[in-house]
């Protein structure tokens, strides 16, 4: 083994830019989850594009506009014969909000406890990094994950449209639908960060956050199916997520996305306050 004497005159260390190194590492750690989400988005879009000519020749209108399907997708569409409407059903309905939102909720929920589990949080917080910055960078990595899924969806729709003659997609409304889905995923990230702020196990925190999105989907389905349960819709986030209506029917309630963003901010800020106050565990 080499023995090397440390020089008595070592130059003072030069400053080094931090960048968003915590965000970068956290985003990289979620690569499998995000890749799986992106794969299914692309697969679904391609399947819809390739099968649209066949599907359009089959009369599925009665089925797709039924109450049962309305409960599953979170919206009762008037006309589902267009390519846009079919894409909206497959990529922007509440069922897919459950999956993509769930992925982001899990990613955000697991991000902070994962650093407790892998032992890096003590080492990181012994550096000149505030807890607030640490939390916000992790949150930002989940938001980047949401943006990644959103861009993947838009790209997949574009690729899918290449297979369809006269696809007639209104790209402006597609962008609005994406922004609405993004608002939901922002809320999902806030819910995840809230759970991650006080749970020490990544699977428990990610699973709990995913569970909240799952519960919202259940409430959305039940609320859509029965007039007596419409109150359920008003207190769950998927009701305010009108991506499907935006793309299929070009109509939304303007202030609904703001509900999602504000709720996401409230959850995230609550998580930040909890994280700043708590003692961190050794395990």
């Amino acid at each position: 083994m080499a023995t090397i004497s440390v020089s008595q005159s070592i130059a003072a260390p030069k400053k080094r830019a931090r960048g968003l190194i915590i965000t970068r590492v956290s985003f990289f750690n979620a690569k499998t989850l995000l890749a799986a989400g992106a794969f299914y988005i692309l697969l679904i879009a391609l399947v819809v594009g390739l099968l649209f000519p066949t599907l359009s020749s089959v009369n599925l209108g009665a089925y797709l506009t039924s109450n049962a399907v309305a409960g599953l997708v979170g919206a009762k569409l008037k006309d589902v014969s267009s390519f846009s409407a079919l894409l909206a059903l497959e990529l922007y309905s509440s069922f897919y909000a459950l999956i993509w939102g769930g992925i982001i909720a899990y990613m955000a929920g697991a991000s902070l406890p994962a650093t407790i589990e892998n032992g890096t949080i003590d080492l990181a917080l012994s550096r000149p990094i505030s807890r607030t910055r640490y939390f916000l960078e992790l949150w930002f990595s989940a938001v980047l994950g949401a943006i990644f899924l959103s861009l993947t969806t838009a790209l997949s729709v574009w690729i899918s449209a290449l297979f369809v003659q006269n696809a007639n997609i209104d790209w402006g409304w597609l962008a609005i639908a994406e922004l609405i889905e993004l608002a939901l995923m922002f809320l999902a990230s806030g819910i995840g960060m809230l759970f991650g702020s006080f749970l020490n196990a990544s699977r428990a925190a990610g699973g709990a956050a995913f569970g909240i999105i799952g519960l919202a989907y259940l409430m959305n389905t039940l609320g859509t199916l029965s007039d007596k349960l419409t109150w359920m819709l008003k207190i769950e986030p998927l009701y305010y997520t009108q991506g499907i209506q935006a793309l299929a029917e070009h109509s939304i309630t303007n202030w609904y996305p703001a509900v999602l963003v504000v709720a996401g901010l409230i959850c995230g800020i609550a998580g930040l306050v909890i994280f700043n106050r708590r003692d961190l565990p050794t395990t």
């Binding site: 070592i10 003072a12 030069k14 000149p128």
Partner: peptide
């Protein structure tokens, strides 16, 4: 990662 968090180059 930790050198960046420290904001300093690892001279040693």
């Amino acid at each position: 990662y930790f050198s960046r968090l420290q904001g300093l180059k690892p001279v040693l």
